[in-house]
Design a protein around this nucleic acid. Structure first.
Length: 276
DNA sequence: TCCCAGGCCTTGC
DNA sequence: GCAAGGCATGGG
């Protein structure tokens, strides 16, 4: 068991902000998470402004994997402190989501997850990914005997027919996934190389995948490759920019961490919509 | 019933 | 190069 003492880290907010589709609440302030074949149970304890997060894993597993995964070496206070003091909307958004971190999720999993995300809502995306994992992932048993399923490998999805995949409620996205899985297995698009590219190169390379456009590529860059300068513009962000930043959003003020700012805005706006 | 959800692809100009 | 239309499915 490991305890994180960090007031700018809230597993509840990270779950709620919809950047990770394989996290879910399993009890009061308690969440489970499946990432890169691992299972983690976490509990968030709040006392006034203090946040403690308990991770039910060994010190070794925390140090070698989860710490980096949650980007805990990074102090997010600097991002919030860097916000324009005259920007009331952004100040409020960042205060609301001050516990958000940008996770370092698996590249392949983010590619498929955000292909699924298009024209879709977060609850439905989660259900689809759960179905995919149950049907095409590996069944595993955690130390506390919880059964969980890993995210399906590219080789597996590349062999599934488009028609069969449709049974996971993927709709028209089914063909995107089969084609994308094939181009990755055949290394037309090389994930290892993408991992070493900068933001601009990686984004361009990802857009070679069938079903990956600019917005999805930006999400992959942000949530898997940790290119914090990526600023995905989806329907929520577009609404905010159109109503609160009619003169244009001041990207130049947040150079290098535009994506963190994006997440504060997304979470704030998304929460205000009553979360469909 | 219509509209929308973390858009993208194809077509037509 | 760019604006329209189509696309699966479920929930409000």
């Amino acid at each position: 068991m490991v305890t994180i003492n960090n007031n700018n880290f809230s597993i509840a907010q990270i779950w709620d902000s919809g950047q990770c589709f394989r996290m879910k609440p399993i009890g009061e302030n308690t969440y489970e998470l499946i990432a890169s074949g691992r299972y983690l149970k976490m509990k968030e304890i709040r006392q006034e402004a203090k946040i403690e997060t308990i991770c039910f894993c060994t010190e070794d597993e925390f140090e070698t994997f989860w710490k980096h995964y949650f980007d805990l070496e990074n102090d997010y206070r600097k991002y919030i402190e860097g916000i324009d003091k005259n920007d009331k909307y952004l100040l409020e958004a960042a205060a609301y989501g001050s516990g958000i971190h940008i996770l370092r999720q698996d590249l392949w999993e983010m590619i498929i997850s955000f292909i699924i995300s298009q024209q879709n809502n977060i609850r439905r995306i989660r259900n689809i990914i759960q179905l995919l994992s149950e049907r095409y992932g590996k069944k595993c048993i955690a130390e506390d005997n919880t059964v969980y399923y890993t995210f399906p490998e590219p080789e597996v999805l590349s062999e599934v027919s488009e028609e069969e995949l449709r049974n996971c409620n993927l709709g028209y996205r089914s063909k995107y996934i089969v084609k994308t899985a094939k181009s990755i297995v055949e290394k037309e698009v090389d994930l290892e190389k993408i991992g070493k590219m900068n933001y601009i190169e990686a984004r361009k390379e990802l857009m070679k995948l069938y079903g990956v456009g600019g917005k999805v590529a930006d999400c992959i860059c942000l949530f898997a490759l940790h290119h914090l300068e990526a600023f995905p513009i989806d329907t929520h962000i577009k609404q905010v920019l159109d109503t609160n930043y009619k003169q244009g959003f001041p990207f130049e003020k947040y150079k290098g961490y535009e994506g963190v700012i994006q997440q504060y805005i997304f979470y704030f706006h998304y929460s205000s919509m009553g979360k469909k």
